[in-house]
Simulated assay, not measured.
Amino acid sequence: MANTLDFTKGHGTGNDFVLITDPAGERVLTPGLIAALCDRHFGIGADGLIRAVRSESLPAGEAILAEDPGAEWFMDYYNADGSTAEMCGNGIRVFVKYLIDTGLVTPVRGETLAIGTRAGVRDVQVSAQGFAVDLGRWRLDENGPLVHPRGVQVARPGLGINVGNPHVVVALADDSELEGADLSVAPILDPAPPEGANVELVVPRAHLVQDGVGQIRMRVHERGSGETLSCGTGIAAAALATRHWAGPGAPHQWRVEVPGGVVAVRMFPTEEGEHVSLSGPAELVYSGSVDLDRLRREG
């Protein structure tokens, strides 16, 4: 009998994922298997893998359900190299789309779903325009590392932003410098963060603010995945960093252009402090099955 795995391929502005359902958390996912599935030449191909698991079926789910008993489903997310990640802003939108389309949840339009992640519970609102995820509180580290991307002549200071996972945001001079950066290799960070970090390169649009909305362009190198067409939490980090650099009077709404499309960011106050949210599309492309015994992998 064939050892097959049913999967669905999805993406959020080009940031793509392999999605699987494993409610009881019974399937063994080794880093080698995940890397093989995400391999773009010998596997399905993706920036990461997302497993839908009931929170009650995972050790990490105990804390999730204590935080919000309504967080029935846990987004078990892995980078393309098989390493774990705390959160994924594009991935969680695609994850909710997957839960809905596979009948695992049946929300009404406008309802908010609580989703468990390694960064805690995240609320996702379903609307006719797509999905909006509250990424929660964020943290600033002004003493970020010096960043030297390949293809950029002079190293630049980075601004550390944590939105559930770590980011370092770098301002570049202009579009030509942004386009000339080589993100096929990870930018050098000095000092290197112990857990690594995603790195975002940012330039403003011709008009930084138009009709009260900030506008920037961004490229990203994600730890464990390389350059991707989009990174949801990185988009939020880039908007937060640019607002910080712009100073008082900078807008709290941003339009961020990445190679895979455009995503909206909003900062808003809450009782526990300022939150940041991300709004954008989520698409499921196709479903299939893969014979795991024939999959080329190591480990």
Rank of each mutant, 00 (worst) to 15 (best):
A52N: 01
E222T: 01
Q253N: 06
V147L: 06
V53M: 01
A241K: 00
I64Q: 02
P204C: 04
N198R: 08
P107V: 04
A71V: 05
K97N: 13
G120I: 05
G116Y: 01
T84Q: 15
L37R: 00
N198T: 09
H207M: 12
L178G: 08
C231D: 02
H41P: 05
D6Y: 06
A181P: 06
H252L: 14
E283M: 07
E272F: 09
V209Q: 11
M267D: 12
A171N: 12
A192T: 15
F42G: 07
A192D: 12
E298K: 15
S176Y: 14
S277D: 02
V213Y: 07
I20T: 15
R109L: 14
L113K: 00
G144A: 08
R156H: 14
P193E: 10
E62K: 15
A206G: 08
D22N: 03
H275N: 10
L208T: 14
T30S: 15
Y286L: 14
N90Q: 07
V213A: 15
L229A: 13
A114C: 06
T8Q: 08
T102N: 13
L99F: 13
P187Y: 05
G180W: 11
D190F: 06
L278H: 03
R294K: 11
F268C: 08
R294L: 14
F131T: 00
A60M: 11
M75K: 04
V133F: 07
L183E: 08
P248K: 07
T21Y: 01
L65P: 06
V220G: 05
D134Y: 03
C38M: 02
I34G: 04
V213R: 13
G234T: 06
G82P: 13
Y286A: 09
A239P: 04
L278F: 10
L5Q: 01
I92M: 10
A128C: 00
G234H: 00
A66G: 11
V126T: 13
A132S: 14
S277F: 02
G280I: 09
R255H: 13
P107T: 11
I64M: 12
V290K: 02
D68W: 12
A238K: 09
R297M: 14
V168E: 10
D182E: 01
R297Q: 09
R27F: 04
Q215P: 04
A241P: 03
G160V: 13
E111G: 01
T117Y: 04
